[in-house]
Amino acid sequence: MKMPNLAVDICGVKFKNPIIAASGTFGFGREFANYMDINLIGGVTVTGITLEPRSGNPPPRIAETASGILNSVGLQNPGVDYFLEAELPKLLKYDTNIIVNINGTTIDEYCKLAEKLSKYPIDLIELNISCPNVKEGGLAFGAHPDTVYEVTKAVKESSKHPLVVKLTPNTSDIRETAKAAAEAGCDGLSLINTLIGMAIDIDRRRPVLANITGGLSGPAIKPVALRMVWEVKDVVDIPIIGMGGVMKGTDVVEFLLAGATGIGVGTANLVKPTTCIDILDELISYMIKNGVEDIDKLIGALEII
């Protein structure tokens, strides 16, 4: 059988395959260059960027929980200007799509970031209104449909690039925030960000994380993520980048069937730096074995009697 077609269109941008390294787990890409050929994956989402450099939260910032990881990095990053000068040129050398995850504490900051990025040849902006580890911004925007609408509309007007809104699962009904983002004019959605959780050290009677709570990721949240992708795809007409606990090729197939067009790989990058490529190989094997000639045939193909 010939090589199946893996290319997908997300917000008018062609991806050679749906595998996208998720924000916060792939650095600026170069950290992984010794381990895998970055040219082979559909896209790289860089670590969350803010207008000014951010030092992040105190350590410990990570805790292992059953089939999951709690993190409370708190958006440590060198700021957008450093990113554009020092990191973006290195990333642009690779033949892969670049998604920049932007974070602000005010709508104005988000807009300024989008304006700055509009002058550079990146492919997508991911509006992060779902970081659970910062006191201002993040979830303050992402948890309610009205604030999601407001920030999305303003950033969309400031951005020349297609805009993907990254949604939080920490809300009463993700369909409402998804609809609000779509009505505000965004081009796509990515979901889910991490679930707020905590871990406790019983010997010290203290939280494991210095930040007390953190964002839960990994296989532990995959069922939640799948359900949310499946729910959201019925209420919006824009593409979805699905993510949450993708560890292997069959996980990708599950997210595609649930309705995602792109697939974010996050926590798995921490487990094994070659994961994105391994997953891609497994996806291709699945398609060949099951006679799927075009990945399009899998997207949203879940059958419910």
């Binding site: 916060g24 787990t25 792939f26 650095g27 950290e31 992984f32 010794n34 381990y35 670590t47 992040g56 105190p58 350590p59 410990p60 910032r61 990570i62 805790a63 990881i69 993190n71 990095v73 440590q76 990058n269 921490l270 730096p273």
Partner: peptide
């Protein structure tokens, strides 16, 4: 320190 990736990408093992 508690570590994630070990290769400088995930920013969890800070000091």
């Amino acid at each position: 320190e508690r570590m994630g990736c070990g290769i400088g990408a995930c920013m969890v093992c800070s000091c």
